[in-house]
């Protein structure tokens, strides 16, 4: 499964997972995308930019092992190597947790750049899990990005906020301000997609969302009980039992690294009474 990448120069690609709106699935996505890249043998690190409201560590299941954090590294209180938490399931996967006690002002542009530069020397993919909003934390998470995954629910406020974030990616990032640089490659990931509600006409379709946002589609993640289960357990959804949500993340990661994968809309079954009686607890 894993390739020997030791002799190759690391790719050093910085990808921000952002959305503007909160609660749409940024951290779930960061964990799933990071874990899937790592499972494919790419050296991957996921960084939590939500200073003061650390949560990536819980979703990744390493919350009991946090010693030093991103802010300690920025402020010179710890070396990067000491703050990185190596995943116990995948040796190619690491987490850089953030501080639970500081605030966003602790993120300086110079500090973030220094840490990202150091990570580029060692990792193929650096996934920046952005906080909600468009203020300092979110701006720092996107500033040095090469690519962006804009997580969007098929719902008006989420689509509107995604549009705002797409505007920022094209105006305030390093790539936007450097003459001659390629713009940040932004793609939309639709999450919490509910096939039955779309069929009944109460939820916007994927086509509706894409028509409004006018950026390429990275994938469609169905609303799924597997996502809540994975966060309860502290396991990225792609590393838990097979589910439609996990398969959709696997496809999205394939597309992210350039594979041609046909877009499909899957759904995990809702658990009915019979399942509740006869299947193990989920």
């Amino acid at each position: 499964m894993s390739k020997d990448l030791k002799l190759e120069e690391p790719l050093g690609r910085v990808i921000v997972v952002t959305s503007g709106k909160g609660g749409v699935g940024k951290t779930t996505t960061s964990a799933a995308v990071g874990a899937e890249l790592a499972r494919r043998g790419h050296k991957t690190v996921v960084i939590d930019f939500d200073v003061g409201l650390r949560n990536l560590d819980m979703i990744m299941g390493c919350e009991r092992r946090v010693v030093f954090d991103f802010i300690n590294v920025i402020q010179g209180d710890a070396k990067l190597k000491q703050a990185l938490i190596r995943d116990r399931r995948l040796e190619t996967l690491s987490v850089l947790p953030t501080s639970q006690t500081r605030d966003k002002d602790a993120l300086t542009k110079e500090g973030v750049e220094r840490v990202l530069d150091e990570l580029r020397e060692e990792f193929d993919y650096i996934i920046c899990d952005s906080p909600a909003g468009i203020e300092r934390g979110a701006q720092m998470a996107m500033h040095f990005a090469d690519e962006a995954i804009v997580v969007t629910n098929p719902e008006v406020s989420s689509v509107r906020d995604s549009d705002r974030v797409l505007g920022l990616l094209n105006s305030i990032t390093e790539r936007a301000s450097k003459a001659g640089a390629e713009p940040v490659k932004a793609q939309v990931l639709i999450t919490r997609h509910d096939k039955s509600r779309i069929e009944s006409g109460e939820m916007m379709t994927v086509e509706d969302v894409l028509e409004v946002l006018a950026v390429p589609l990275l994938g469609i993640i169905p609303e799924s009980p597997a996502v809540l289960r994975a966060s309860n357990l502290g396991v990225p959804v792609v590393l838990d039992d097979p589910s439609a949500a996990a398969a959709a993340y696997e496809d999205a990661v394939g597309r992210l690294i350039g594979e041609q994968i046909e877009m499909r809309i899957a759904a995990d079954p809702r658990r009915g009474l019979l399942q509740r009686l006869f299947r193990r607890a989920v």
Partner: peptide, 21 residues
């Protein structure tokens, strides 16, 4: 997966993790 002793639900794992943290 059916058994007389049901497997622990993921929600109780979530609660335990939160309590410790």
């Amino acid at each position: 997966g059916f058994s007389l002793r049901p497997r622990k639900a993921s929600a109780s794992t979530a609660k335990e993790r939160l309590q410790i943290l």
